[in-house]
């Protein structure tokens, strides 16, 4: 009898088990954020879709278009995206509708980014939804009937993929700084100038400037510290994959970083600011399990 081949350490690490409920909770939280994001921005997206055609600069998948869509069609796609995302959240016909929801979200947000300015507040959300749509993320807490057997791959790899995607985006940001400016980026002047110019644009366009911008711009030496901390935090993002404690510590640092961005630039990366981008590093199933247990007790139903 031949001895079964032992999985490599990388396979054991990547496929380390996690409960189906954790992945389901992550699906619900990220899906709800995506749904809310689409609904909240639907009106603005419609307004942008009505801009003169010369403003249309297609990017990503929208490059298949040579001219903008009719604004009403663009609105209809946004509404369809919201409906598909609702199905994603509740885990309805997940195998079919979740990939459609991911494609619809990709299209809708790419279309919004195709009007002369690419924002960077939605990239990670799209990547996370695509990853979840490719995974057995509705094996628990879904309208779909629970499968008789758990997924053979387990559920931990999806959680790890979400964390890896998050970490990678921050590492890319650091690489871009080092490729363009090199170590000169840490002298603080570049960061200070970026913050100053960004706030100036806001002021001239009648938008609110950041609450701490003027105070710090008057004391430029502090930006050297901010620059070093930024690079260390971004390049150090992969530590989130080492273990749960380091992952939580890094996520907390990332959250603090984004609070700093609000304070100095008034740029709201809501996905990380609300903690949704980091939900995969947390035992996200616990509050849901508590809520379900409370509801069952209240309804006099037997426990799960």
């Amino acid at each position: 009898m031949s001895e079964a081949k032992q999985p490599s350490w990388i396979s054991r690490w990547w496929f380390a088990p996690a409960p189906a409920e954790r992945l389901a909770a992550v699906r619900i939280v990220i899906g709800m954020f995506a749904l809310a994001w689409i609904l909240i921005r639907i009106r603005e997206g419609y307004a942008v879709a009505q801009l003169p055609a010369e403003n249309f600069r297609p990017t990503g998948v929208v490059r298949i278009l040579e001219a903008p869509l009719d604004p009403e069609l663009s609105l209809a796609i946004s509404i369809a995206t919201a409906v598909l995302l609702a199905a994603f959240v509740v885990g309805f016909r997940f195998r079919v509708l979740a990939p459609l929801a991911a494609v619809a979200l990709l299209w809708t947000l790419t279309y919004r980014n195709s009007w002369g300015m690419i924002f960077h507040t939605e990239n990670l959300l799209v990547l996370h939804v695509i990853a979840l749509a490719c995974a057995p993320a509705a094996d628990a807490w879904a309208i779909d009937r629970r499968p008789e057997r758990p997924a053979t791959t387990g559920y931990g790899w999806v959680i790890k993929l979400l964390v890896a995607l998050t970490a990678l985006t921050y590492v890319l940001a650091a690489i871009a700084k080092l490729r363009i400016a090199g170590m000169a980026w840490i002298d603080g002047e570049q960061l200070r100038n970026q913050i100053a110019v960004d706030n100036l644009r806001k002021a001239l366009l009648g938008d609110s400037i950041a609450p701490l911008a003027t105070q710090f711009l008057d004391h430029p030496s502090g930006f050297t510290v901010f620059s070093i901390l930024t690079l260390v935090f971004e390049l150090g993002a992969p530590i989130a994959l080492v273990g749960p404690r380091l992952a939580k510590l890094w996520a907390l640092t990332a959250w603090g970083f984004h609070v700093g961005v609000v304070m100095l630039m008034n740029i709201w990366f809501l996905y990380p600011l609300l903690g949704v981008a980091f939900i995969a590093v947390l035992p996200a199933e616990r509050p849901f399990a508590w809520l379900i247990g409370w509801w069952r007790r209240r309804a006099g139903m037997p426990g799960t």
Binding site: T59, G60, H120, A176, I180, A184, V197
Partner: peptide
């Protein structure tokens, strides 16, 4: 740059504090 695949270079460029723009 692209969406959703980006090099995230938005804060990487050297820029002067002097800015000209229409508003």
């Amino acid at each position: 740059d692209g969406f959703p695949l980006s090099p995230y270079a938005m804060f990487a460029f050297r820029r002067p504090t002097k800015l000209s723009m229409e508003y």
